[in-house]
């Protein structure tokens, strides 16, 4: 973290323009360091790559086995559900290398490190999400491979418009996931331990996102559209791309809104974070 420390004396300075360039640059630096760490332990990296691949294959394998004797689930066939999973995984892959480390916040606060973050010349949130703990650069790689396979086995071909839309959808999905995590952890400024909250959030996501939203009762669909809008990570945009309309509550056209929903959720999480930060008092040790 030497780069940031050197500027500590100057305090936060520079306008929006500087910030816009500096943060992506620092992030690239962070990824580069992570890649170097991974290259340092090649066996470990390979094991993790295989491990993550098997994990996704088993998730997809369960869907595959379910839909051997039964052709459809909630109006979705296996190839479509595979695509649904792969699209979710794209957002997850981006999230894994950007915002996922928000969960370090409660550790930093508890162990008193967070105070140091306050006086460094980059935002505290940025320092939390770049906590130097091995990040999994293989997650987005696997996500891309899986997505290509998923697209290949679909019965419909994706149009150029779909491909043009894809980056915005993936970024939107990652922002939804990151924004919700940020909101949960911003609460840790009020109540110190939020790790159970994160486990609950992850459990909800993992349990419900694997299957099309159309199989759930309306109240559950409503919950995942407006309270924890995980529906916008994969289900709604997948409906748009596959031209499916299986939930009365959510028209496929709403898929265009995924980036906006992502920005809104992230903005809400960030707002909560700012409010919490103002309230923050050191654990004092």
């Amino acid at each position: 973290m030497g780069v940031e420390c050197r500027g500590a004396a100057r305090r936060r300075s520079g306008g929006l323009g500087v910030t816009l360039f500096r943060y992506p640059w620092l992030f690239m630096h962070y990824w580069r360091l992570s890649a170097l760490v991974m290259a340092q332990y090649p066996l470990n990296t390979v094991i993790w790559l295989v491990f993550a691949t098997i994990y996704h294959l088993s998730s997809i394998g369960i869907l595959w086995a379910m839909l051997q004797r039964f052709p459809v689930l909630g109006g979705w066939t296996f190839p479509e559900m595979f695509f649904l999973y792969a699209l979710w995984n794209m957002a997850h892959g981006l999230y894994a290398i950007t915002l996922a480390k928000v969960y370090w916040l409660s550790r930093h606060v508890r162990e008193g490190r967070f105070d140091i973050f306050q006086i460094r010349p980059v935002g505290a949130l940025f320092q939390v999400i770049t906590t130097p703990e091995g990040i999994s650069l293989q997650d987005p790689l696997i996500a891309i491979v899986l997505f290509v396979v998923a697209v290949g086995q679909l019965h419909v071909a994706l149009t150029p418009t779909d491909f043009a839309l894809l980056p915005a959808i993936v970024v939107g999905g990652a922002l939804v996931k990151g924004g919700l995590l940020l909101a949960v952890y911003a609460l840790s400024f009020w109540a110190v331990r939020m790790d159970a909250g994160r486990q609950l959030l992850e459990t909800l996501e993992v349990q419900f996102v694997r299957f099309p939203l159309s199989i759930y009762p309306q109240a559950v669909q409503w919950f995942f559209s407006f309270v924890l809008p995980f529906a916008f990570v994969s289900f709604v945009p997948a409906q748009l791309i596959l031209r499916k309309d299986t939930v009365a509550l959510l028209s496929p056209q709403l898929g265009y809104l995924t980036p906006a929903v992502g920005l809104a959720v992230f903005a809400a999480g960030y707002l909560l974070w700012r409010i919490g930060l103002r309230r923050y008092e050191s654990t004092g040790s």
Partner: peptide
């Protein structure tokens, strides 16, 4: 507690999944 909550949610989801599979595919149900 978190483990149990996960179990209950998982049971709920799988319950819906199998019920829906049987409902929608009555003709081909094994």
């Amino acid at each position: 507690v978190v483990g149990l909550l996960g179990l209950v949610l998982g049971l709920y989801v799988l319950h819906l999944v199998w019920t829906e599979l049987y409902r929608a595919n009555a003709a081909v149900a094994p």
